[in-house]
């Protein structure tokens, strides 16, 4: 292990900005609130910067003051906006920095979206949260975000206005599954080689879009295992290849039958292959959280709720253990 920072402090997101090598740690102090730390020397030293905060008087719902409860996603603003950073929070606010993270401002247009107060609710956390921020590298004002529970929202003007992109998704946990918002995408990612190909691991299955989120298609295996889970990753060189880390079900959030499996599709979700070689196949209770499965070229890495970190050099065909005794793993990323 090269370094360990903030021992004993839960880190919701560990993020390395590929543009400049800056490391970020989103902290979740139980007592002292969320904090944001920045390192420009790969974790040798850190400086605390002001974490995103809700302006005075803002409310989650009528009578419930808004305070940042969790930093749940972080993304850089692209190569044309070198000082821009995005952060998604619980209770549902998106924040943007235009000064390299020295300060963050609430994105008012989304916070004031007419669906928010009545149509968004907690999922995974007590209040709504933004866990996915997908910036289109072809046009960095074009962004998709994922909210639990609300769904997928899209902006084409860097957050000035938003469109709901939930068509084709299901929300079978709702009394009225035909609602406009209230969907539970656990994570949303885009294929680097074709950003119009979006993938999401949703509470109600695995969904894919080939038209930038305008339409979603359920590509789950009805009988599993590729069905319920939290994480998803897409190959850098193939928009039809993706990995998921299945859990049993929403009512039983453990490995399926005590065995850890990663599933990969090579054909856009038509079929899924079970990858188990090198993964524990008995007495295993690990699941993989939404930001803890990533890939880079042929390498795939995931971390689990029981502190196991696994690595595959060949797109998941074979796995080896990197570490068995880490704390619960929330977030994994390749860093240069």
């Amino acid at each position: 292990m090269e370094s360990c920072s903030f021992e004993g402090v839960p880190i919701s997101i560990a993020y390395a900005d590929p543009r400049n090598g800056t490391w970020w740690a989103c902290q979740d102090h139980g007592h002292w609130g969320v904090k944001l730390q920045r390192s420009k020397d790969r974790g040798k030293s850190w400086e605390e910067v002001t974490a995103p905060a809700y302006p005075e008087g803002e409310e989650v719902k009528d009578g419930m003051p808004a305070t940042t409860r969790y930093l749940w996603s972080m993304a850089h603003g692209g190569n044309n906006y070198t000082s821009r950073l995005w952060i998604g929070t619980d209770p549902g606010g998106l924040f943007v920095s235009e000064d390299g993270g020295n300060s963050f401002q609430l994105v008012e247009s989304l916070w004031k979206h007419p669906t928010r107060k009545e149509g968004w609710f907690g999922g995974g956390r007590d209040l709504p949260g933004i866990h996915s921020i997908v910036v289109d590298p072809r046009d960095e004002d074009h962004i998709h975000i994922g909210i639990s529970c609300a769904g997928i929202f899209e902006t084409t003007d860097a957050g000035k206005s938003w469109a709901i992109r939930n068509k084709g998704m299901s929300a079978d946990f709702l009394p009225d599954p035909t609602v406009e918002t209230g969907f539970d995408p656990h994570i949303v990612v885009a294929a680097p080689s074709n950003p119009d190909f979006l993938w999401q691991q949703n509470h109600c299955g695995i969904f894919r879009s080939t038209d930038g989120g305008k339409n979603w298609i359920d590509v789950s295996e009805p009988q599993g295992p590729a069905r319920f889970g939290f994480a998803i990753a897409v190959a850098g060189d193939n928009p039809d290849q993706a990995w998921v880390a299945p859990a049993d079900s929403d009512v039983n959030r453990t490995a399926i039958h005590g065995a850890l499996v990663i599933c990969r599709t090579d054909d856009g979700g038509k079929t899924w292959k079970q990858l188990r070689n090198g993964l524990p196949q008995e007495n295993c209770f690990d699941i993989v959280y939404r930001h803890a499965l990533v890939n880079d070229s042929n390498a795939v890495v995931f971390g689990t709720t029981t502190g196991n970190l696994f690595f595959s050099p060949d797109r998941g065909e074979n796995w080896e253990v990197i570490n068995n005794y880490l704390p619960m793993i929330y977030s994994v990323q390749f860093a240069d």
Binding site: H29, A51, Y54, E56, G57, E58, T67
Partner: peptide, 12 residues
């Protein structure tokens, strides 16, 4: 004080 109070100035 940001450790003691939340965004709205309430005790954490």
């Amino acid at each position: 004080t940001k450790y003691v109070l939340d965004d709205q100035g309430r005790l954490r």
